[in-house]
Every structure is written in structure tokens, then in C-alpha cells.
Computed example of a mutant assay.
Amino acid sequence: MFRHMAITFLLSQLYCQAKQNRWMRYFTGFNRVALALGFLPSGYVKIAGERFTSLSNNHPMGHYLEALFHTGYYYTFIGVAQMTAAILLLIPRTALLGAMLYFPIILNICILSFSVRFDGSLVSSPLMVLANLYLLCWDYDRLKGILLPDPRTVLVNRSKGVSNEFPLAFFGGGLITVVTVGFTVLNLFDMKPYNTLNDCQQNCRDSRNPAACAEFCDCIHQQGQPLNRCLDAYNRAVAAQPNGTWVAPRK
């Protein structure tokens, strides 16, 4: 019990120090504006009934977005939810509600981007998830009644003035996190469909098996086959010819 109280007290102190820091407040405002700008254009496009992207329907993400476009008012509903979350984020009194609405939407986009290996949001979406989580943590004092309904929760005096000390450790850790996420995501997949056939084929020059890679690009962008089927064919070709020569995979 005492250990729990000590940890809670320490976290509360760190939290209050962050809330009283001018630079952290600037960073919070930046995150709110950046996330809002990420949803306002895409939400408006959906409400206006326009297609969200010019991706080919043969592309895995293109398959999904084309089907989504034809869902009628569900497509519009997503746009309304995105714009609502963005607007709520920009209003200080409703910023927490905006962050709570924003989170499931951006988490879904992040998982979707990874599942179809979509270059367009492969890096940005996990960073947006982290930014959204930061905003939820920023309003921990308003959320703790839901998350930790414990009457023994330690309260820390927050009556001190605003601090102008630059939180070097926080921003240094944040920069390392962004670089780590970006590097990891960009090197996570051996093969990606990329956005166009030309982009995909250019990547084949550095592939373990250029011919198999070219077949993969054709499988995606010309034949419109599912991503997993094209990946399976590519992996079989690479595994069958470890010396780099290539035999066309079975159809």
C-alpha cells in the first residue's frame, strides 16, 4: 500500500510539474492543432462526397477506400466524426472530448495502414497515435476519476506559478521516439506495394530478387490480387531460389 502511494505521489508530482511548464503547454497546443489539421481536410472530403485518394483500385488500400466510398452515409458519418474530433480539439474546454473521440479513429487508421502496408500513413499514423495518447495523458487529472476511482489517490498542490524551464529530457526523449518509430516502420517490411506501379518497380532494384519483386508489383497493380496472395508468391520465389535466380511462381 505504501509503495503504491509513493509511486502515485511521484507520478502526481511529475504530472503537475509538466502542467505548470510553459513549454509543455506550447507542445500540447501544437499537438492539438497538428492533429486537428490531420482530420479537417480528410473529414471534409468525405462529407462533400468526394473520393479520398487517387490510388488505383488494384492497390490494397485502394480496394478498401473504394469500397468505403460506396457505403453511402457511413462514409459521410466517418467524415463528420473526423471533423467533429478536430474542432473539439481546437476548443480548450472540449479538447479532452476531442482527444477521446479522435483516438479510436486514428488507432483504426494506424492498424489499417500496417495491415495493407500503405506508404501514405505508415509513419504518420503511429506518430499521430502517440500524439493523441500524449493529449489523453495531459488531461489525466480529468480522467483519473474514471481510470482510478480510488479515494486514496494522492493529491499534489498545483498552486505554483508557471515554469519557463525548458524540459530538455522530455523533448530529447520525444525526438528519439519519433526517429525510432520512423526508422522502425520504414524498415519493418521487406516488401510493400507502394502507391503506384512505377514506385513499386523502382524499389525492385534493391530487392533480394528483382524478378520476383517485379512479379509482385504486377500482381498488385496490374492484376489487382490480394496483398497476402502476392506476398506469398514473392516469398515462395525468394525461398526457392536463394542464389538470386528466379523461376516464375505458380499462378
Score class of each variant (00 low, 15 high):
1 M>W: 10
9 F>M: 11
11 L>R: 12
13 Q>G: 09
14 L>A: 13
15 Y>E: 02
22 R>E: 03
23 W>T: 04
23 W>E: 00
26 Y>H: 13
27 F>C: 03
31 N>I: 00
33 V>P: 00
33 V>A: 15
34 A>C: 06
35 L>K: 12
40 L>W: 10
40 L>K: 05
45 V>Y: 05
48 A>K: 10
49 G>Q: 08
57 N>C: 10
57 N>H: 12
60 P>S: 09
60 P>E: 06
66 E>M: 12
66 E>V: 09
67 A>R: 07
68 L>I: 05
68 L>W: 08
68 L>S: 11
76 T>V: 09
80 V>G: 10
82 Q>L: 13
84 T>I: 09
86 A>H: 03
86 A>P: 04
87 I>F: 09
88 L>A: 13
88 L>M: 14
90 L>G: 04
92 P>T: 07
92 P>W: 08
93 R>T: 10
98 G>Y: 01
99 A>R: 05
99 A>M: 05
100 M>N: 00
102 Y>H: 12
105 I>D: 00
105 I>L: 15
105 I>H: 03
107 L>Q: 06
107 L>I: 09
111 I>H: 09
113 S>N: 14
114 F>T: 07
115 S>P: 05
117 R>W: 07
119 D>Q: 14
120 G>A: 02
120 G>V: 00
121 S>I: 02
123 V>G: 10
132 N>K: 00
133 L>F: 10
134 Y>G: 01
136 L>E: 01
141 D>H: 11
146 I>F: 12
149 P>F: 06
151 P>C: 04
151 P>Y: 05
152 R>V: 03
154 V>L: 12
156 V>F: 02
157 N>W: 13
161 G>H: 06
163 S>Q: 07
166 F>D: 08
166 F>P: 07
169 A>T: 10
170 F>H: 06
171 F>L: 15
172 G>L: 15
173 G>D: 02
175 L>T: 11
176 I>S: 10
178 V>L: 11
180 T>A: 15
180 T>E: 08
182 G>I: 04
182 G>H: 11
184 T>A: 15
184 T>L: 15
190 D>I: 09
190 D>E: 14
191 M>Y: 12
191 M>Q: 14
196 T>F: 11
199 D>G: 07
199 D>S: 12
202 Q>V: 04
203 N>M: 12
204 C>I: 03
208 R>P: 12
209 N>M: 08
213 C>F: 03
215 E>W: 06
216 F>Y: 13
217 C>A: 06
223 Q>W: 07
223 Q>G: 07
226 P>T: 06
227 L>Q: 11
229 R>I: 11
233 A>R: 15
240 A>W: 10
240 A>D: 14
241 Q>A: 12
243 N>L: 06
246 W>A: 05
246 W>Q: 01
251 K>S: 09
251 K>R: 10
